[in-house]
Amino acid sequence: MNIHKIAQYLNDLGDNSDTGHSFDCQPIAGEVDVLQISILGREELPIFVSVTDDQILCITYLWGEDEVVSEKRTEMFETMLEMNIPMPLSSFAKIGDKYSIFGALAISSSVEEIEHELTVLSDNALDVIDDFSEFLV
């Protein structure tokens, strides 16, 4: 699996995806290949996909450290840990000063499984921001 195969599949889907979403894929140049995937109507929360030797990583950035209400930080952490298992397919993470959710798939995953993962990740991101808004400025 590589990002070009994923991009090709998602772009070819058009309006015919099972999930009812339209995807727009933009490769980002850098030391490693990253695919920026926007779901139509949810452009503000793009998903970044990178493929390593043994896994496919799908990451959505949620909010920055500067958006967290400092006195609710610990409570937010606890909520994240408690939510981590119930939240389907995605897990919480922190990259630099940004909180995110991500899903990791085996390199042998099919394009359909990746599409499913992306949709669930996007839905999770929206729900998480909604549910965590009490911790955010």
């Binding site: 980002i28 140049a29 850098g30 030391e31 490693v32 990253v34 990178s50 896994q55 990583l57 990451i59």
Partner: peptide
């Protein structure tokens, strides 16, 4: 090695995303 490489990859990907 996978842990190391993934860390590296995520970091480079973050750099690319931030640059973008």
């Amino acid at each position: 090695l996978s842990v190391v490489k993934t860390t590296d990859s995520v970091q480079k990907a973050t750099a690319a995303i931030t640059d973008n």
